[in-house]
Amino acid sequence: MTPQLLAGKRGVIFGALDEQSIAWSIAEVCAAMGAKFTLTNAPVALRFGQLNTLAERLGATIIPADATSIGDMEKLFQQSEEILGGKIDFVLHAIGMSLNVRKKNEYTNLNHDWMLKTFDISAVSFHKMCQVLYKGDHMAEWGSILGLTYIAAQRTFPDYSEMAESKALLESFARSFGYHFAEKNKVRVNTISQSPTMTTAGQGVKGFDKFFGYADTMSPLGNAPALDCANYCATLFSDLTRYVTMQNLFHDGGFSSMGMNPKLIQE
């Protein structure tokens, strides 16, 4: 029987696209643990994804919203409060997109207009989201805001391109807003740095399959699956982690602490 760790909690989950999405697994786990939430994604993503299937199965309402639009964010959280019947206990930001990565532009030859768009979608949207939550007083006391990130924010992974800078900016926004939310109403703000995961977006990175295998071998526990990431997120949405804030938390099977794994040499 699944523990009802999130019974009575209200949330908003960004970024579920299809069954390969980490946000999809997080939504399933949160529902199983007793949470009620709304689901949101950009209108263009809704046209190409499978979010309706997830919403119908979990009994969740979909609210289309462009995370780069302050107006859309305001409507999203106002409507979510009305639908869920109260202030929001948890929010998941699982958004990232780079046209440069999709078009396989080398880091030394990026389209800078696309780079700015990458930053806006993948990182500045987190600040806009937090700002709307903060100014609108939408978060319940001791609530939890969480963003998904990657270790490329701290280390160089050439094919990850300017998404690395996006994740570094995202993590900085989480730390900075973490202070302000703690002062306002004890809301925690954290990021989770997840293992490479076979998502639709992840597989768009050049050489992802080979790197996935490398990370799996380097990590003493192997790559962390999406479902385990979802369970970890649930603990951070729960009351068991009330004093964890302004942290970047690695959920990567130990990859972030390794220098070299002898298994790589043996292979």
Rank of each mutant, 00 (worst) to 15 (best):
M1N: 13
P3V: 13
Q4T: 15
R10Y: 13
G11L: 05
G11S: 08
G15L: 09
E19I: 07
S21D: 07
S21R: 05
G34Q: 09
A35K: 02
L46A: 05
F48G: 07
L54A: 05
R57Q: 15
R57A: 15
G59M: 12
A60E: 04
T61R: 15
P64C: 07
K75N: 14
K75I: 06
Q79I: 06
Q79C: 02
K87N: 14
F90T: 01
V91D: 01
H93T: 03
I95E: 03
I95W: 09
M97D: 07
S98I: 10
L99V: 04
N109K: 10
N111W: 08
S122Y: 10
A123M: 05
M129G: 00
C130W: 01
D137K: 14
M139A: 04
A140L: 05
A140F: 03
A140I: 04
G143T: 03
S144V: 06
G147C: 12
L148V: 09
I151P: 01
F157M: 13
P158A: 14
Y160V: 14
E162Q: 13
A164P: 00
L169S: 13
L170D: 02
E171T: 09
E171P: 10
E171R: 09
S172D: 11
Y179T: 13
H180M: 10
F181V: 02
A182M: 10
E183Q: 14
N185S: 13
K186C: 07
V187R: 02
V187W: 05
V189Y: 03
T191P: 04
S195D: 12
T199I: 11
G204K: 14
F211P: 00
A215N: 08
P220N: 11
L221G: 04
A224W: 00
P225N: 07
C229Y: 09
A230G: 12
C233W: 07
T235A: 11
S238I: 12
T241K: 08
T241S: 15
Y243G: 00
T245G: 01
M246F: 04
F250D: 07
S256P: 05
K263C: 01
Q266L: 08
E267Q: 15
